[in-house]
Design a protein around this nucleic acid. Structure first.
Lengths: 140, 140
DNA sequence: TTTGAAAATAGTAATTATTACTGTTTTATT
DNA sequence: AATAAAACAGTAATAATTACTATTTTCAAA
């Protein structure tokens, strides 16, 4: 299974690299179509999956039922806005503490953990001020 | 929107209460059909969503693209087996430490966090990966 | 106890994100 | 240039979930 370059994949990577808001496949599709009007949504999905599999990008599952993709593969936490669904990075340093603590409490192999934070992003706070939104069925 | 009881909803709650492995809607459906052969999958979904909305159960999104449901609404962590997909509770005490730390690093309102652990469960380790992933919904 | 409106239901259709299939084109190696 | 593997566009299929509709059930008030 020898990789061969393609303009489409390059374009997908380039687009992802240009964004720090972790777009979905559909967003990638709509943007890459600017350069490749005939690109197929399947091609976008196939490449995103491939890139995630070989570790060049990260697939984020933030509980909204839609996969987001991050060009930054270094370990870091994410914030998900319950109102607009936007995903952003946190600068909070990543720690293994909880994983290690969990290992002591569990029979079986704990490989790692997934953590994301949710709430309202600054943008949404500014826009609507007061009414509270709790979407996406995010557990407390 | 005044709630009215229904035998079907009672049965769904009763089934969920009897299980600590956080079944999916489909598993609930297959089991409740034992008592209500004509129950509709839509009824199961509607009631699970309703119960989650009024806080009687918890909807778990553990990254496998399928919603799991937990009768236990008290805060606790979950483990997801990457091999069989099974979800189980951890006894690890829940802490707000990370959420508080995250708040200091973020402009916007962080309401909370979602954390789950992943790896291989004891059951799958014992079977040493030779067998096909166990069927969901069947008690161990 | 009857009544009637709201809520719930069964059954089915529609939606959404994603994956699979197929015949053609592109890549890169001989 | 020849060629085989890989990637592609376009389309069909899948899977989880939600929406729709006509009928039935619940329950408070008459």
């Amino acid at each position: 299974m020898n990789l061969k370059r393609s303009k489409q994949r390059d374009s997908i990577k380039e687009f992802l690299a240009s964004r720090k808001d972790h777009p979905t496949a559909d967003v990638v599709y709509m943007n890459v179509r600017q350069s490749f009007p005939n690109i197929s949504l399947g091609t976008v999905y196939r490449n995103l999956t491939l890139l995630a599999d070989i570790g060049e990008i990260t697939r984020l599952r933030v509980g909204d039922g839609i996969d987001h993709f991050d060009y930054d593969t270094s370990p870091h936490y994410h914030f998900v806005c319950s109102e607009c669904g936007g995903v952003s990075d946190l600068s909070l340093p990543v720690t293994e503490q909880m994983t290690e603590a969990a290992r002591k409490d569990f029979e079986g192999e704990i490989e790692g953990q997934v953590t994301y934070f949710y709430g309202r992003c600054n943008n949404c706070i500014q826009k609507s001020g007061r009414h509270v939104a709790r979407q996406h069925g995010l557990p407390d």
